[in-house]
């Protein structure tokens, strides 16, 4: 119903006031050190009760705040699963690598997913593939076998990355919300382009590239794979004939410029949701806006910690939602 989520959207509108705009990002960039940046973020209300938080604990706290708000506002959070599948497959990848290498480093997991990461680890340890959700079973077993038998980490990665994109795309197609459908389309297309460029730079064969690329409506995976096997120029020629023609220029600049372009593309697409008063769209846009904000802050903190130049950090910072 179009009038649904009226209360939730109004709360989101009030919460959007606390989102970072370009001026706040400039303030963070102007901070002289990593510590000053953390202090500035704490002054803005970031983090919890911890007096001296690390960057990761601060960012994890903010992500938790977003999902805590969503849990209050949306009775069935499965409408946002499309945003969590990449975390699920990341956690699955981490679990498979941990089990295959016998390591016990639990810092690799992301806290929010549709399946708890502890359950995922247990499933991989027990090889109990049947307990996984349907779409995860096949790729999980295949990736595990690939790593366990061939020790080919890259093969394991492409199986799970491709499965994650397929899951995002399927969830996007199934959604009734236009924003979620478009998010899935842009996510898969941009991931395909990134993979194709990486494969072109490392000279991968066409079969390998085709296996790594997920299908989507706006970009033919088979044509992209063929172009990637020929080289970066062929990819650019192909993209020039698609909806992603603007990507050609940034692709030639650097991979980080292209990643920034992809994120900005999604942010520009969701920005009109600030003026919608009903429906799930503004809530989904808020989640994406917050994730984008957290990503930008992570880039700034990491840049400050590694004493990168302001210019270098600024080039990587994404456009803000508000």
């Amino acid at each position: 119903m179009s009038e649904s989520y009226t209360y939730a959207v109004a709360r989101i509108r009030a919460n959007e006031l606390a989102l970072f705009n370009d001026q706040t990002i400039e303030q963070l960039l102007a901070a002289k050190s990593y510590e000053e940046c953390i202090r500035l973020l704490q002054d803005k209300g970031w983090g919890g009760m911890e007096a001296n938080p690390t960057a990761e604990s601060l960012l994890a706290e903010e992500r938790e705040k977003t999902w805590a708000l969503m849990r209050e506002l949306v009775p069935d959070l499965s409408v946002f699963d499309v945003f969590l599948y990449t975390n699920d497959y990341h956690n699955l990848k981490a679990a498979i690598k941990l089990v295959c290498t016998g390591s016990e480093d639990f810092g690799l997991f992301i806290s929010h997913g549709t399946v708890d990461h502890r359950e995922l680890l247990h499933t991989v340890q027990e090889r109990d593939w049947g307990s996984l959700p349907d779409p995860m079973r096949g790729p999980a077993e295949e990736a595990y076998n690939a790593l366990a038998q061939t020790r080919d980490g890259q093969l394991c990665d492409i199986i799970l990355d491709r499965a994650a994109l397929d899951a995002v795309y399927t969830a996007g197609k199934a959604s009734r919300d236009e924003l979620i459908r478009k998010y899935a389309e842009l996510t898969v297309a941009s991931a395909d382009i990134k993979t194709a460029v990486r494969c072109a730079r490392t000279g991968k064969p066409v079969d390998f590239i085709r296996r790594a690329l997920a299908e989507c409506d706006s970009l033919s995976a088979s044509r992209l794979a063929k172009a990637a096997a020929e080289g970066l120029d062929s990819i650019c020629d192909l993209l020039a004939t698609t909806d992603y023609a603007d990507a050609v220029e940034v692709l030639r600049q650097s991979p980080s410029a292209f990643e920034r372009w992809c994120d900005n593309l999604i942010i520009r697409y969701i920005r009109p949701q600030q003026f919608q008063s009903f429906g799930i769209g503004p809530l989904a846009a808020y989640i994406l806006g917050r994730e984008n904000e957290i990503k930008s802050v992570r880039i700034i903190l990491s840049g400050k910690l590694n004493q990168l130049s302001d210019q270098s950090i600024r080039e990587r910072v994404r456009e803000m939602y508000v």
């Binding site: 009038e3 009226t6 209360y7 959207v9 109004a10 709360r11 509108r13 009030a14 008063s277």
Partner: peptide
């Protein structure tokens, strides 16, 4: 009624 839902949302936050 629908305006009340939105008003409640804003008042919850502020």
């Amino acid at each position: 009624g629908i305006a009340g839902q939105a008003a409640a949302g804003v008042t919850t936050e502020d």
